[in-house]
Design a protein around this nucleic acid. Sequence first.
DNA 1: CCGGCTTCACGCGCTTTGTG
DNA 2: CACAAAGCGCGTGAAGCCGG
Length: 345
Amino acid sequence: MLLDWITARLPLRLFTEEQQAGLRNLTDRIQRYCPQTGEVKFESQAWDSIRSDSHQVVFRVGSTDFWLQGSPARAIGDGDAVFSSGPAAALDVPGCVDRMINVLFAGIGPHLKPVATRNAWIVTRVDVTGNLLLGSLSEVRDALRLLRNVEGGRYKVSNQAGDTVYWSAKSRLQAGKAYAKGPHLSYLMKKKDYDGRRYSDAELDQASRLLRLELRLGREFFLRAEPWHTLTKSYLVSLWENYFGRMLGGCEVKTDNELLENCISAATTPGQGRSAYALWCLIKSEGWERAQNMTNKRTWYHNLKILRASGLGDADFSAGNVVHLRRKIIEVTLATSWADIKRVA
DNA sequence: CCGGCTTCACGCGCTTTGTG
DNA sequence: CACAAAGCGCGTGAAGCCGG
């Protein structure tokens, strides 16, 4: 598990006058790029954001606070955002904040670094992320397909970089997200302006078996919780497990002994009905994606049509997956490093 | 010959990529 | 930036293949 994102702010009054002026200077320079150069500058509520030289930590100067945010993983070690290392991998929030502050002010000017202690910063968002290692990309996709149908999932599916499932995306308290890490990495690396760590082909291949589960703790969470710098690793882990445990639980196996007969009567001939039922068994044992991959395309659709005509709906297909995936998920421990993957492989 | 499976060609809706 | 072209997964009908 690792910390994937942190947002923190520090009241501007904790900077010296000179530092405040310097920071505002930075935003002024950026404002020139704005076509509407009216007289309203940083007085307005709109914040200017500037990317630090490193592109690892981003900051902005608001009217009352200085904000910083970014992925601690990318500011630590070799920038590995899959597993990370150091404080990000240790779920050490204060350590990550320290690190991000150092990286940021090294980039924009050490003289701008506030003298205020680290704990004076106010953390408003932390992403806790786990990597679940499954058998293959197909299984990862199946897991996503399943999670999408989980009870209470007010989900929205995005197709931008492989499938992503969101829960309560707009919540200020906590929200969840699941996606396949492999396609996401390839997508990132293909982008022209990608300047992060380069992942090897072997790593990309291994990452394709990872199901990424992200828990975002938002502003509201930190208002209610203990002071952010006292959050322990075990507490963060338990939050994550509670949140996603609920998702991974609540699935129910459904068996239908009459299905075979339904298939036979739904098909034009008994033989087709039987083979449609055989396909259902295959889906149950191998999962949707694998079953599809190992079946001829036309046969697949043909038998699927019979299965649907026999009363099976999409939810049932997902339920068919459940048996398989739940077993897998329990079997498989969290992967915490590249070495973990190799060991299992 | 029959029944089931496979091959082929294509339409649709959507996203990505290329180009002026 | 707009628009076209290409790619991709889903899904279908029709015709051919092949073992019993």
